[in-house]
């Protein structure tokens, strides 16, 4: 067992998989010699050689396309898209190709690809380094979408994603790469080393896809969150005195509906929290599912606390980001009736 940041945990997952399986290789912009702009592939080229971990041209379409070709050959590529905001040139290859190839070839060709990409705001990245585009992928038949919120989960989920035979979009909440974030941007960052979730086994282990975790047990209201917003939601519960049960979804597709339903049936209330814009965000799907499955248990309307339907504005970062004050307001509203 070692103490790891989320970056170190992700690096360790890649290290473990490169060592175990010769069909695993990883590439992306600046991912080779330099080890990635966030250092997730640091040292891997030196350890495994330039054909196992290498730099790619600035070409997300080319990265995704060659990964699809490699998958058709029988490799298990892990590609890095430097920022989730850059993924759109590769979208056709993800949506029309990687996601559909098993179906359209009746299982003969598959795309066992993992797409790692840092997402989310809170780092003053402006509108092209802050987006949360997860709902553009959860909507696509054939894709799995995973978002960890701790170093332990990041490593275990990434190993599961790499071992999975379907394409997985693996969003990394970059704001919490080095430590959890309560949403209080004016307070100093707490490093991961102060938290139990940073205790990470050095070898191989998995956290299964499709299983949520209860990040905070509670009885008053269920909060559905993922990534950075798990930590913001936990902080909101502590500060408000509202005994919220915070569910960390971890995988958006396939979704752990059982854990969600059990919690909402217990609390009778539900607030959904995500950083992505509200309209057609993943919260809309969650609200529909909770309503379908738990209607007769609900004591109050399902609430949503989200980013606004604007681009992510640089100077207004903390007006856009759904911080603790907005989450607390959402919790209070859910408790009113």
């Amino acid at each position: 067992m070692a103490t790891m940041t989320m970056i170190q945990a992700l690096n360790s997952a890649l290290d473990v998989m490169l060592a175990r399986d010769e069909n695993v290789l990883t590439f992306g912009e600046d991912a080779g010699y330099f080890g990635g702009v966030f250092r997730v592939t640091d040292g891997l080229q030196k350890k495994y050689g330039p054909t196992r971990c290498f730099d790619s041209p600035i070409s997300e379409g080319g990265i995704m396309a060659t990964a699809v070709g490699m998958g058709a050959y029988g490799l298990r590529p892990v590609v890095e898209i430097q920022f989730a905001d850059y993924i759109y040139p590769g979208y056709d290859q993800i949506v029309s190709e990687a996601a559909k190839i098993r179906y359209r070839s009746a299982g003969e060709f598959t795309a066992p690809i993992t797409v790692r990409t840092p997402y989310g705001g809170g780092i003053f990245g402006g509108q092209t380094h802050s987006q949360s585009p997860e709902s553009l992928f959860t909507h696509i038949a054939g894709l799995k979408t995973v978002i960890p919120s701790t170093p332990y989960d990041a490593k275990g989920l990434l190993i599961s994603a790499i071992e999975d035979d379907d394409p997985v979009i693996f969003f990394e909440p970059k704001r919490i790469y080095n430590g959890p974030f309560s949403g209080h941007h004016d307070q100093p960052v707490q490093p991961w080393s102060k938290f139990a979730e940073a205790d990470v086994p050095e070898g191989h282990y998995t956290v299964p896809l499709g299983k949520a975790a209860i990040a905070r047990e509670g009885n008053d209201v269920t909060v559905l969150a993922y990534g950075t917003m798990v930590h913001v939601s936990k902080a909101a519960a502590e500060e408000s005195g509202i005994d919220a049960e915070v569910i960390d979804l971890r995988t958006l597709v396939p979704l752990d509906i059982e854990t969600i339903v059990a919690s909402v049936e217990k609390t009778g209330r539900c607030v959904i929290v995500h950083e992505a814009p509200r309209t057609s965000g993943f919260g809309a799907e969650l609200a529909a599912l909770v309503q379908e499955h738990c209607f007769f248990h609900l004591e109050a309307p399902i609430g949503r606390v989200t980013g606004w339907d604007t681009p992510y504005p640089h100077a207004f970062e903390w007006h856009y980001f759904p911080g603790p004050a907005r989450v607390i307001e959402g919790l209070r509203k859910a408790m009113e009736r």
């Binding site: 379409g61 080319g62 396309a65 060659t66 990964a67 699809v68 070709g69 490699m70 998958g71 058709a72 050959y73 029988g74 490799l75 290859q93 190709e97």
Partner: peptide, 10 residues
């Protein structure tokens, strides 16, 4: 077209 390149790289 670029998938063929990826297969060839593999």
């Amino acid at each position: 077209f670029p998938q063929a390149v990826g297969w060839a790289m593999a």
